[in-house]
């Protein structure tokens, strides 16, 4: 019998309050959600092994490593640029991405891998006013001409490192963004996202349901 049993819980357990918050009664200006079940691996090419990494990624994920400031999409896994010669391999469970063991095997010798599935918290922010809310806290230019669908950036939001990218527009044609935040900072940033969205009306999804 172990002395202590670890139980995993959402880093947003206290912060996330599902439902409608802030202004207005019509359609919400911003939709916020936390995707709790993710598979996330940081892949960093070793010196001079970029070509091997590209080949392995293509074979394993069905996608080339993303160009700078972009994402690339395979069947299940999205590859997100996270700096020169490195990217994040991201997928939402229960979709079956290649296991960490399969990834270790595929990139053996060509890249260093770090499993971040429990290290980061994934927050989605979308809607007609998502950009207005984000403008309060990011120095990125999110105009369509500069940051179209498929764009990615590593940046700081409220002095906190964030991997940030733009997904396909939501069902109503509004922009949808993803912020990957260190788990221990996610409570703080979640409050920031909610507070910044209140004036537009914000719909918070129950944890894990995505949108």
């Amino acid at each position: 019998m172990p002395d202590f049993v670890w139980s995993s819980q959402s880093p947003l357990k206290k912060a996330l309050v599902p439902g409608r918050h802030g202004a207005g009664k019509g359609a919400p200006g911003v939709a916020l959600s936390h995707v709790s079940d993710i598979a996330l691996v940081q892949v960093m090419a070793r010196r001079g092994r970029n070509a091997d990494v590209a080949k392995a990624a293509k074979k394993l994920f069905g996608a080339e490593p993303p160009a700078a400031l972009k994402i690339s999409s395979g069947k299940v896994v999205t590859l997100v640029w996270s700096g020169p010669d490195q990217f994040l391999a991201f997928s939402e469970l229960p979709q079956t991405a290649p296991s960490i063991e399969q990834q270790e095997q595929a990139f053996s010798g060509s890249a260093s891998l770090s499993n971040q599935s429990d290290g980061r918290c994934l927050i989605r922010i979308s809607g007609p006013n998502a950009r207005d809310a984000l403008a309060k806290m990011t120095s990125l230019d999110l105009h369509d001409s500069v940051f179209p669908v498929g764009s990615a950036a590593t940046t700081s939001i409220d002095h906190t490192a964030v991997n940030f990218w733009r997904e396909a527009d939501d069902a109503s044609g509004n922009p949808a963004y993803v912020a990957l935040v260190f788990t221990s900072f996610s409570d703080t940033l979640w409050h920031l996202f909610v507070e910044s969205s209140l004036e537009y009306g914000v719909e918070v999804a129950a944890s894990g349901t995505g949108h």
Binding site: M44, A45, R46, R47, G48, R49, N50, G83, P84, D85, Q86
Partner: peptide
């Protein structure tokens, strides 16, 4: 980029 930044540099 400073020398050595990014793995692509030799």
């Amino acid at each position: 980029a400073a020398p050595g930044a990014g793995a692509a540099k030799a």
